[in-house]
Design a protein around this nucleic acid. Structure first.
Lengths: 149, 149
DNA sequence: ATCCTTGCAAAGGGTTTGCATTAAA
DNA sequence: TTTAATGCAAACCCTTTGCAAGGAT
């Protein structure tokens, strides 16, 4: 468990933010959907299904706030909307995805090799790298089965 | 030189597309701006500066068409608009960028190591990878100079 | 009581679409 | 001459914002 509520409360107090019911509900949605990449609309729908309606504008504002506080990580899969996932590690670092071009499925993968790559590139380019985003596009196992072409 | 006009003409003929002046002008914009990552609006502005006005909708439609034909590569830098660059190599493959978090500058870098990484990941995940997109975020040399903090 | 947060509706920014007109082939 | 492409404006979608009402500390 990485999201520590009392820690969070303090983070909020420090900055004069309030830990409102809406914010807690939205946080809970991400805790309950660790493996998913939720858009604002997704979050809004999930909350509504729980008969806890929250204004869409509030959802957007909360997602932005959580991103700033590094509780969430904003990701862009090129599908025309921003998606968010809970920031499991304290360092906002390892976000790598295999994106299936057939079914759109997004599969996570662990890396280590990328760290080395980052070091080499930083050295060659005089660029101070603080984060990276890597996406591989292709065909997942399922879709390979379904259409052997 | 990678963009071959007569080859292009044939590609168009095959699919009953027409090589209109608008399309030629837009193609030329990308040929003249090989190193840039142009948005639809950028293209529109460049064309207007040449007193060759083209409707913005046509620009969008042309960019989409060229992407399908793999003449252009669509990229997303997370700045709220799609950007395009000319597809230099025949295989739509190596698009890697260093994005400066201070000035927004985008620097290209050559890779090779990524190919190896791709192979390893494909093996581990049973995923057939056909393309990848890698972005490193950090601070470019210039911005490092300006604010040593 | 203060100041942040909410919800609604309107506005915004990028992109797409319908339709009549124009122009490649 | 046929069929696709253009240009304009309206529509679209996601996201942001203004503002009055509500709520946490």
């Amino acid at each position: 468990m990485n999201v520590d509520l009392s820690n969070l409360r303090q983070k909020f107090r420090e900055r004069d933010y309030k830990l409102t019911p809406q914010r807690q509900i939205i946080l809970q949605v991400f805790i309950n959907n660790r493996d998913k990449h939720l858009s604002a609309e997704d979050v809004h729908n999930i909350v509504r299904q729980q008969s806890n309606d929250i204004g869409l504008a509030t959802v957007y504002r909360t997602l932005e706030l959580f991103s700033e506080l590094e509780i969430l990580q904003k990701i862009n899969f090129g599908d025309g909307r921003s998606r968010y996932e809970i920031n499991e590690t304290s360092s906002p670092h390892h976000h790598h995805h295999l994106i299936c071009l057939t079914c759109g499925r997004v599969i996570e993968f662990a890396d280590d090799l990328l760290e080395d790559l980052e070091t080499i590139i930083a050295k060659n380019s005089n660029f101070t790298i603080v984060d990276h985003q890597v996406k591989f596009y292709g065909y997942c196992q399922e879709c390979q089965k379904h259409c052997e072409d």
